[in-house]
Amino acid sequence: MFPLYDENRTRITPYFTYGLIGMNILVFIHEVSLSHAQLNQFLSQYAVIPQELTSNWSGEWITLFTSQFLHGGWWHLISNMLFLWVFGNNIEDRLGHFKYLIFYLACGALAALCQWFIGMNSEIPSLGASGAISGVLGAYI
């Protein structure tokens, strides 16, 4: 009924969507290459740990972004990247490259803050692109 594009509009190549997928895969490959002790150290440094965010906001806020590139297993990675591949290109096309990247990262950071708000004293690391991808899915709807 209402077309998304006029006849003259062409779709852009979703470079940032492909880049985000590639970065997530590369970080996950790094994760699986680590020993158990190294992985724990890696996650404590780059995942959102609500208790640490509560006690040291100035030193931990960057994890709101770095945690978006970490995943807890193959299924977690594959399902997130599948949804990003299917829906992300449409949102990137609609918003443009840079607005899309800002939107994606902001959705992920806001999702991490929601998780932090629910359990401010939790010691369990929070990680994954699910919050950012949920924002992309919401935008798609």
Rank of each mutant, 00 (worst) to 15 (best):
F2I: 07
P3Y: 05
P3N: 11
P3R: 12
L4I: 07
D6E: 07
D6L: 01
E7W: 10
N8G: 11
T10F: 10
T10K: 10
T10C: 07
I12K: 15
Y15F: 15
F16K: 04
Y18Q: 08
Y18H: 11
L20F: 14
L20S: 10
L20Q: 06
N24D: 15
N24A: 15
N24C: 15
I25F: 15
L26F: 12
V27D: 11
V27K: 08
V27N: 11
H30M: 10
V32S: 07
S33Y: 06
L34W: 10
S35T: 12
A37D: 12
Q38M: 15
Q38F: 12
L39T: 09
L39D: 08
Q41C: 03
F42Q: 11
L43G: 00
Y46C: 02
A47Q: 12
A47S: 14
V48K: 07
I49S: 11
I49P: 13
P50Y: 04
Q51P: 00
Q51Y: 07
S55T: 14
N56Y: 05
W57A: 07
S58D: 13
S58V: 13
S58A: 14
E60H: 15
I62L: 07
L64V: 09
F65E: 13
F65M: 07
T66S: 15
T66W: 08
T66D: 10
S67A: 14
S67L: 06
H71G: 05
H71V: 08
G72V: 01
G73M: 06
W74L: 10
W74D: 02
W74H: 05
W75R: 04
H76D: 14
H76G: 07
I78L: 08
S79C: 01
N80C: 14
N80K: 00
F83A: 08
F83L: 13
G88D: 03
G88I: 03
N89T: 12
N90F: 04
N90Q: 10
I91F: 01
E92T: 01
E92K: 02
L95C: 00
G96Y: 02
G96D: 00
G96V: 08
F98K: 06
L101T: 07
L101V: 15
F103M: 09
F103L: 10
Y104I: 01
L105D: 12
A106P: 00
A106T: 14
A111W: 01
A112N: 13
C114N: 06
F117E: 02
M120Y: 05
S122L: 05
L127Q: 07
A129D: 01
A129S: 14
G131Q: 09
G131L: 09
G131N: 10
A132V: 06
I133A: 00
I133D: 01
S134Q: 03
G135D: 09
G135T: 07
V136N: 03
V136I: 15
L137C: 12
A139V: 02
Y140T: 00
Y140S: 01
